[in-house]
Structures are given as structure tokens and as C-alpha cells.
Amino acid sequence: MSQTVTPPPSNLDNAPLKPAGGAAAIAPQQSGLSEFVQETSALTKRLFIQLQRRPSTLIAGLIQPIMWLILFGALFQNVPPGLFGDSQNYGQFLGAGIMVFTAFGGALNAGLPVMFDREFGFLNRLLVAPLASRFSIVLASAIFIATLSLLQTAAIIIMCAVLGAGIPGIAGLLLVTGIVLTLVLGVTALSLALAFALPGHIELIAVIFVTNLPLLFASTALAPLSFMPRWLQVVASLNPLSYAIEPIRYVYLHSDWALSSLVMQTPFADISMGAALLVLIGFDAIALLGIRSLLSRNFA
């Protein structure tokens, strides 16, 4: 009869496994980061697929600001020169306001897809899924809204150039893009917070309608501060939209702009370009810090 001979265990078999340097500690972090990027990319792609299936949303978002420019520009085309500051015509004055208000309106609607996912149960499936980070849901919505806002901003810039408002230089265009993205980030955070805090989409739509036009008229989008009564000047000076509109308007009217350039005279103080940008950054910080605890509770 043949016997099976079992070889004696070697020292290597009994030796404990040891991580090779710091590779084992770094690998999970890299894997978690790649999974987070993959999740965010997939959720962002899902939103763009929805947009592809309903292109009327994008078409309306591009046509509406152009109609505002054409109709409002024609309505006030006979105003005396210099009535709106250094602007040669009302269309040139209006361009910055339409640009910012369009980005604001799109960001304010950012919570609607998340709200519908809540009501249809898809969000619950995401929350119980083994995600690397549930904040990829928030980041995907922010990327989607920022992309749409940039497309709308590009269309408005082109239409403003066609209507004779001119076009800023490369540095001016980069500044305009940065201002729009900064505003979109803060408003998107607030909209997502409302999507988790409110009970349903009816309430969210009601909040959007209630805040949309009042914030437009209580800003410098349609008229300068000097045209407003004292109490409205105070309100417009507290409106973050004004701090996004005036720097863009100044860039369009002055090719020699700088961070120290005076862009707005409020009842409280004279606001420079750099100060307006700091206000927008502070608005983003407050919005992001405020939404963090709310999202953590809802995701838990």
C-alpha cells in the first residue's frame, strides 16, 4: 500500500503575515477615494441621462435668459445714457444681473431631483447601498448644476456680445466663471438642505417660488442701488446676489479691474472687488457648514 507523506511545515508557513511597509495602510485610502470618485461619476452620469431624456429642461434654461435680455433690453432701450452708471445701454447693465439670477435659479432647483428620489424610494436604495461616502449624492448634484450653470452663462455671454455689451478678457471671463460657480455652490447646498428638511416637493416648489422673484428685485440685477429707496438699499446690500452681480458688471465695464476696485457703495460701506468675493466665499462657508449636520442626520 502506498502512503502519503506530508512534508513538515516550513518556517515560512508559520510566519505571521506582515504588511509590506506602508503599502497596506495606503491601499485602503486609495481604494476608498477611487470608489468615492466612481460613485460620484455614476450618480452624475445618471442626472445627465435624465437630462438627455428630457432635453426641454436644458432648452428652456438656455432660452429663458436670452428672452430676458432681449425683452428687458428693448423695454429700457430709450433711457438716457449714463442713467445706469457707466453702462452705455440698459442691455449692458442687465447682462450681469441675468447671468447671476439664471445661475441662482438653477441652483435653487437643485434639490428637486433629490426630493423626487426621496418620494419615489430611490434615495432609500442609495442610503442602504454600500457606498464609500453618501456625500457623493450631494457632490453629484453640485457637479450637475454647476455644469448647467456654465452652459447658461456661456449662452448669456455670447448673447450679450451680440447685443453690443462687449466681452471681457480672458482674466475677466475666468473671474466671471469663478463668481458663478461660487454662488452656485452655496445656493445648491441650501437647496439640498431644503430637499432633506421639507416633507415633500410641493413645499420645496413653494419655497422656490416665494424666494425667487423677491431676491431678484431685492438685488442690483435690474436697477442700481441709487435708484432704490433707503430700506430696499439695505435689503439689497444684504443680498448675496448683489455681491455676485456687481463684480461681474464692473469687469464688463472696466478692462483695468483689480481686487481693490470699488464695485458697490452700500449704506454700510464701500465694497471692493476683493471684499465682494470674500462675502461670497463666506456665504458658501456658512451654507456648507449649515448643511453638513443636517445631511449627517438624514444619512444616518
Rank of each mutant, 00 (worst) to 15 (best):
L181F: 06
P8F: 10
V184S: 06
L131Y: 05
V234K: 06
S133T: 14
L151E: 06
A129H: 06
D284M: 04
I286Y: 03
F196K: 08
A258P: 01
F144A: 04
N78A: 15
N11V: 11
I49K: 15
L43T: 06
P55H: 08
I26M: 11
A23I: 14
S56C: 00
Q77F: 05
P16N: 07
Y252H: 08
D284P: 01
F283M: 06
V234F: 14
Y250K: 03
S255P: 07
Q77V: 09
A107L: 05
L192K: 03
V79T: 12
A285V: 15
L216Y: 03
I205F: 06
Y90P: 02
L108P: 05
V279F: 12
K45L: 13
I281T: 11
L62A: 08
I286R: 03
L280A: 10
S31N: 13
F104E: 01
G22E: 14
G121H: 02
F196W: 13
F217I: 14
A195F: 01
V100R: 04
L139Q: 09
I271W: 04
A96F: 02
L204S: 05
S34D: 12
G172N: 04
T211W: 05
A244L: 00
S34Q: 13
F120M: 12
V207Q: 11
E246I: 04
F93K: 00
I157E: 10
L94R: 00
G32D: 13
L33P: 03
P8R: 09
T182Q: 03
P224I: 13
D270W: 09
F268G: 04
K18S: 14
R53M: 12
G172W: 00
V234Q: 09
